[in-house]
Design a protein around this nucleic acid. Structure first.
Lengths: 383, 383
DNA sequence: CTGAAAGCGCTAACAC
DNA sequence: GTGTTAGCGCTTTCAG
């Protein structure tokens, strides 16, 4: 028996190996050892599907089916379904999501990647998305890219590996290729805030150009003759469109544009504030400033407060992106408010159509362009 | 051969099963089918450890060891190590973190649970933690509990299941049991902002009582005779300590406390603002207000601006928690600033000692109580 | 209708 | 030094 009677047969060769007494005993020993370890750990480890099946004397398959609500579909008997559900309930069993992810490739997690989660606009939107995700049984996770390509790429990779089910993305300028890749690999992606002009993506934007145009027109209508535009040197759509809106309005009224571009790296620094101060000194005719983002406005207000006190008494200020404290400031600041709730709603509904499709890249491209609202406050009331 | 010669032997019985022609063939068929499926998917699927091992003609063990930097320890030859590393590099292989988590029970993720991620204080701290985590090779994820027990518990469960490696927690009042459980189960937990008086936990707090005392004393020294304290009805430590600090100072100077407690549910609502307005009307002797949190201050400033214009010209305002815009406001607002960077630093270093221990619950309890800083601004300068 | 078993990709105990 | 293999907990195909 120890030797295979027919060396030429693969089947027998395989068996001859199995028949070696040593091999058999070693295998059994191993088996016992595993089982032992299994039981000795049992007390600390949570019950698994297998445990439930064993306890109920049915197979894991059946339990799994019931667990995933496929009981009826798989024609499992009512009594069995009930018995399983009752037991699961009673021991408060929850399937291990990691194991499930490993098997299914899905995770129930959506990522929300913004420039800086501590910025008011992004933080508020994140909060809204967190609740919306919750409603759809998705967990949202957030991260800050600093509008930096390397960091964005790293984060995309990281989450991709962790099997997140979809990306809400404020893209930094150099990640077009990564975004394309995600889409090609059937990963649901929705862009917002800014987009790639050459790339057809699912996205929800606001009409930056229109909003900036109206805002500038508002300044002009209020009697300001020389509105300046304070922006950054970022070349992404959200910024270029705002600039164009401003320029278009000035052109319409035959005024001369006056633009200050602050390097992105300096937007939170003293050097950035210095640039604003210098600009204001060098352009004394400026009777109003339109800031392209809320952090620029903060810097601007600080400069005005400490270096040009009284400037606001006779001059105007207007900002893109609202903020609770702009309402409270004296004077309160006229602001272009993005419709956060609406943005969130559209983002989530687009994402849901994508995650529910087996071929997200073949879902018809969805694009939304929302209107922002100009909230007129004291800072643009001519006295 | 088909029948076991000795039915009484378990060994032979097992083999007799294996020897059934049908069973063997079915098994082989299955095997082939799987393999086929495997290869047919190959093009879309990322390379796995097994693929690498096959390609390099070595075992997965060896590759795994090298991958985890155990090459030297396991005495794997230099050439092999190099060969593996080069290949891994060349195909840009990254191990699947889900599979790794399933196996190891760890995830490389830390959770940061706060009351409301869109609140300035929490958002800023989150941003700091995100960067600190990154430095220690941990991914941070954030979520908002709304200081609500049910939600906190759900989130803790959710993340616990997902094998997060540790919790930074601002506990809501009713989750003491859950926190205890986590600790008992050897899950690293660090509390901050507030704590459970009866429970010895790893924590980093600030000296709320001292800060509130000094701030109140500052008001009194500035000549304010009747400072009011505007707080919420929340009974957690961060709030009760602030209140005590205020009361202690008033007592020291023989003044009468005047306290407004706004229900937590109304802190962001119009009703909350109404309460402040009513308070101010009913207590005309109030010559300064000390707000216990930054959102109360926002409400307060709004009420003052729209219902009591000019009030700030002769009265004072002071706030717990700083905010960029308090600096910019006119008048700029005197604030108690928490040392965010320092809090973050301590939180992370405590967490690292916990995650690096095999028995986190046996690590000596670590507690830090940091000092907050009073930043004097215009809103408390007597004119 | 239910069960057996493969396999997701990795780790690590153990064999040799 | 290196290879074999069980097993983490689940899903799902296929058999019967």
């Amino acid at each position: 028996m120890q030797n295979s009677p027919d060396k030429s047969s693969g089947v027998y060769q395989e068996n001859s190996y199995l028949f070696s007494n040593y091999a058999i005993l070693a295998a059994r020993l191993n088996r016992f050892r595993r089982t032992y370890n299994r039981y000795s750990q049992m007390s600390k480890t949570r019950p698994s599907l297998k445990d439930i099946a064993k306890e109920l004397n049915i197979s894991v398959t059946t339990v799994s089916f019931v667990l995933n609500g496929k009981g009826r579909e798989k024609k499992i008997s009512k009594e069995v379904i009930e018995r399983i559900e009752k037991y699961i309930e009673s021991i408060n069993y929850k399937p291990n999501p990691i194991a499930r992810s490993l098997r299914t490739g899905r995770s129930g997690i959506l990522v929300f990647m913004v420039e800086d989660i501590s910025n008011y606009f992004f933080a508020k939107l994140a909060r809204i998305m967190e609740d919306l995700g919750y409603k759809h049984d998705y967990k949202m996770i957030f991260c800050s890219t600093e509008n930096n390509d390397r960091r964005s790429k790293e984060l995309i990779h990281l989450f991709r590996e962790r099997q997140v089910d979809g990306f809400f993305l404020i893209p930094s300028s150099g990640i077009e290729k990564e975004v394309k890749n995600l889409i090609r690999q059937q990963v649901p992606v929705v862009l917002f805030d800014r987009y790639f002009p050459g790339l057809e993506t699912n996205q929800v934007m606001i009409d930056n150009g229109d909003a900036a145009f109206s805002a500038t027109e508002h300044l002009i209508n209020q009697g300001y003759k020389s509105p300046a535009f304070i922006t950054t040197d970022v070349k992404q759509t959200q910024m270029t469109e705002r600039l164009e809106g401003y320029e278009k309005a000035l052109k319409k009224y035959g005024l001369t544009p006056n633009i200050l571009k602050i390097p992105f790296s300096e937007i939170h620094s003293a050097a950035g504030k210095e640039l604003i101060a210098t600009f204001l000194s060098n352009n004394p005719e400026t009777d109003s400033m339109f800031f392209a983002t809320n952090y620029l406005t903060q810097s601007g207000l600080e400069v005005i407060k400490y270096k040009f006190p009284g400037w606001l008494d006779s001059n105007g200020v207007l900002t893109f992106d609202d903020n609770d404290l702009f309402r409270i400031n004296t004077p309160s600041i006229t602001a272009i408010a993005q419709p956060l709730e609406e943005i969130g709603k559209h983002l989530m509904s687009m994402m849901m159509t994508l995650v529910n499709s087996s071929k997200p890249s073949e879902v018809a491209i969805q694009q939304q362009c929302l209107k922002a609202e100009l909230i007129q406050r004291e800072s643009t009331q001519r006295h």
